[in-house]
């Protein structure tokens, strides 16, 4: 049973922004798969603005490598989109793993980002695609890099009257991409840890490598020092081993030590190596 609230379902972005500006104690609801669970567990709000009827928030457009994804697009729709399969394979893969078929039909990319869970599956792939978020309110528009958008676990820079309107990513043609998540069961489970990668190689050399690690640090992150280290290096066991060790060092640097690291760090090491080897 949900606590009491009033809801509106605008059909245009402008109306949604107007509601967000005028209503008190208001929350956006997209798929509701995070918000309603939280509300069932005690979170309260007086008003919700349902954005799922807004056509312009469900568009997908792209020219070459610049792709704009509407925040209200569901995981199922993303994983079925051919363009994203080609240019953002890690994102498609992650969308295919989230929750269950039902969750993928309900949950949205915008909700996943705005909820900002350390275990959110879409954040690592979006990080390696240099995602920039477009945010609007009645007062104006702003843009923010995904790295800056998430400020703490479950906390973003979004203000209550703001709406995420576009998720803009850079497609990565010519990269070998992937996403691997580890969970306690084969489906419908939250990631214990995850790795997204995009690797461009030339023969036996790494040309450009992008990595992102989820569920190990308070916020998923890119070990940019490791990416830099790999750029141009020979693809051999030695380099790969060293890179994996550097990733682990970076996680430790960010988070210190945690009991769960006894498990997570060796696994991350193994997965990074696997990803780099291909």
């Amino acid at each position: 049973m949900l606590p009491d609230f009033a809801s509106v379902s605008p059909e245009t972005k402008a109306d949604a922004l107007a509601y967000l500006a005028s209503l008190d104690d208001v929350r956006v609801i997209a798929g509701g798969t995070d918000l309603l669970v939280n509300m069932k567990r005690g979170e309260l709000c007086s008003n919700v603005v349902d954005i799922m009827n807004i056509e312009e928030l469900r568009l997908l457009s792209g020219d070459g490598t610049d792709i704009a994804i509407g925040p209200a697009i569901t995981h199922a729709a993303i994983s079925a989109a051919a363009m994203l399969n080609d240019l953002a394979g890690s994102l498609s893969a992650a969308c295919g793993w989230i929750g269950s078929p039902q969750i993928r039909n309900m949950g949205t990319i915008g909700g996943n980002l705005a909820n900002a869970s350390p275990a959110a599956d879409l954040i690592p792939p979006l990080l390696i695609h240099d995602t920039v978020l477009k945010i609007e309110s009645q007062e104006g528009k702003r843009e923010e890099r995904l790295d800056d958008f998430i400020v703490a676990p479950y906390e973003t820079s979004l203000k209550p009257h703001e709406l995420l309107t576009w998720v803009c990513i850079k497609g990565l043609p010519g990269y070998r991409e992937g996403y691997r998540r580890i969970a306690r069961r084969a489906a419908w489970a939250i990631s214990r840890l995850s790795v997204a990668w995009a690797v461009r190689e030339d023969g036996d050399r790494f040309v450009d490598v992008k990595l992102a690690i989820g569920s190990c640090t308070p916020m998923p992150f890119r070990p940019r020092n490791v990416e830099k280290f790999l750029g141009g290096r020979k693809k051999d066991d030695h380099t790969i081993g060293e890179a994996a060790a550097l990733v682990v060092e970076e996680i430790r640097r960010i988070t210190g030590d945690r009991p769960s690291f006894a498990y997570k760090l060796p696994v991350v090491k193994g997965l990074v190596q696997k990803a780099l080897r291909g």
């Binding site: 084969a186 489906a187 489970a189």
Partner: peptide
Amino acid sequence: FDNYYMPTSMD
């Protein structure tokens, strides 16, 4: 069930 996992069809 979000923190008590039992097998799904895929397990």
